[in-house]
């Protein structure tokens, strides 16, 4: 629990900054509808937030995952924490981050929908808009949460690959570390949601197993001068 708290206190400020920027982005969208709404009716056929929330947070947590392996690992282990305890804390922290980010992402959809509603443009929202129905919300949230978690664990696994192995071995193993990203980012247009969730879950399991294998005997190397 101490390690989880430590990770949360280390990243809370950067999380707040990220969501502050995202909030400005969603407010700009809403403002553009309020001001220019009537003029964009015929060109607007998709949710801007759906695109933004489906990409920026995922790549952001991917980078945080890399940092968990390359920045935090040495400091935490050098502070008298076992690798197993750190792995458990990372697992919980990535899970909590994915949940937190998904809640914030849903809030963004709420603000965007309200923006559309002020101009009576809700009819222009896409058919699969997450807030169109409870079912759509649940379906979107479940998959998006898994994708976020997957991106973060993928970053962690890839960071560990480069921390532990020689660069060519790490490059060769990147496809295993990228499992959740392939499941959560590249396949969606090609296959159905059921298959996507199965792919995501398999990718998550692969990245988790790879992360555990790599961290359990990781040395704490000195920093390079």
């Amino acid at each position: 629990m101490n390690v989880f708290k430590h990770l949360f206190s280390t990243y809370r400020t950067v999380y707040l900054w990220f969501w502050a920027v995202m909030a400005l982005f969603v407010l700009a969208i809403v403002l553009s509808f309020v001001v220019f709404g009537p003029y964009i009716e015929n060109v607007m056929d998709a949710s801007v937030w759906q695109g933004a929330a489906g990409a920026a947070p995922r790549w952001f947590v991917f980078v945080i995952g890399i940092m968990l392996a390359t920045v935090n690992l040495t400091v935490v282990i050098a502070s008298g924490i076992t690798r197993r305890a750190y792995f458990a804390a990372v697992f919980a922290f990535t899970l909590a981050t994915a949940a937190l980010f998904e809640v914030a992402s849903l809030a963004g959809f709420g603000v965007e929908r309200a923006g559309f509603a002020t101009q009576g443009l809700t009819g222009f929202l896409p058919v699969d808009y997450p807030l169109n129905s409870w079912n759509a919300a649940a379906s979107y949230t479940g998959e998006a949460f898994l994708a976020l978690w997957g991106f973060m664990l993928s970053g962690w696994a890839i960071g560990l690959l480069f921390y532990r192995l020689r660069v060519w071995y790490a490059i060769l193993l990147i496809p295993v570390g990228l499992g959740p990203i392939i499941g959560g980012g590249s396949l969606p247009p090609l296959i159905g949601q059921g298959a996507r969730i199965v792919t995501l879950t398999v990718g998550l399991a692969l990245a988790t197993a790879l992360g555990f294998l790599l961290v359990r005997s990781a040395p704490v190397r000195p920093k390079k001068a």
């Binding site: 280390t10 040495t74 502070s79 920093k223 001068a225």
Partner: peptide, 24 residues
């Protein structure tokens, strides 16, 4: 160690906070 196992981009206060959170 001479190389130091602390966060380089953090403030000294954060290093102490890490000690408080992680060291028994």
């Amino acid at each position: 160690r001479e190389s130091g196992d602390v966060y380089d981009n953090e403030r000294v206060a954060s290093v102490l906070r890490a000690g408080r959170q992680l060291r028994r």
